[in-house]
Amino acid sequence: MNIRGIFAIYKFEMSRTFRTFSQSIISPVLTTSLYFVVFGSAIGSRIEDIDGTPYSSFIIPGLIMLTILSQSISNSSFGIFFPKFSGTIYEILSAPISPFEITIGYVCAAASKSVIVGIIILLTSSFFVNLNIIHPVWMFFLLILISVTFSLFGFIIGIWANDFQKIQLIPTFIITPLTFLGGSFYSIDMLPEIWQKISYFNPIVYLISAFRWSFYEHTDISIIVSLTTILGFLILCLIAIYYIFKLGYKIKV
């Protein structure tokens, strides 16, 4: 196992993050604060509690999800896409490091950044509402699990993409809409029945539901079902990455 190699990639990626600190850390904080001001305070004060949770608190898990899903994907997709684009990938390809180890380096770095951003959002939100997390350990575990899963998903996108547009494609046209429709700002059972049914095909619903459960124990879907869905997606991504490297897809000519 090339531990130093994994760590070199991890460190490289993290220093890239801190070099663009304002962009990568401050901007999600700013965006989230704006959501709080608009949805939490301004509009939220006129919306009644959802299952005993004030609306401004209710949206916190969804907001965190909204940010860390897009952060995880963009961090890791960009992390592996950029060396391909600039040509510096040659060094990683010629190093005694296995595809699996490369993946660990990039995915851990992207996930770390997401977790940091998630925690920062949580801290920011504590300025706006009274936070009371019922299952903090689960909350933390889910934050990590989801960050890792979507960083891995982003890594796959980064390998597949051969131009900048493709990197934006999936986050913009799939992930963000699904997150908005996945109950970030409402509870699924507030929807008409037909839309509730349709929502169950949206995988993001399960993430937000599980995450919200760790905060307030209120949930649209049983935590077991949600966890299984997340793990299922993680396994799917792992299988995909295994085949991508096995076939040398789009990296080696």
């Binding site: 090339n2 531990i3 130093r4 190699g5 760590f7 070199a8 990639i9 460190k11 490289f12 220093s15 890239r16 070099r19 600039s86 040509g87 510096t88 040659y90 060094e91 990683i92 010629s94 190093a95 005694p96 490091i97």
Partner: peptide, 30 residues
Amino acid sequence: IGLVPQEIATDSFEKVIDTLKFSRGLFNKK
């Protein structure tokens, strides 16, 4: 093996010493 490819490809924003440390680490050297 050490490789110097034909095209120049470097991480513009890295410091010289950091990029060497990165390479050394990638090849699992102390």
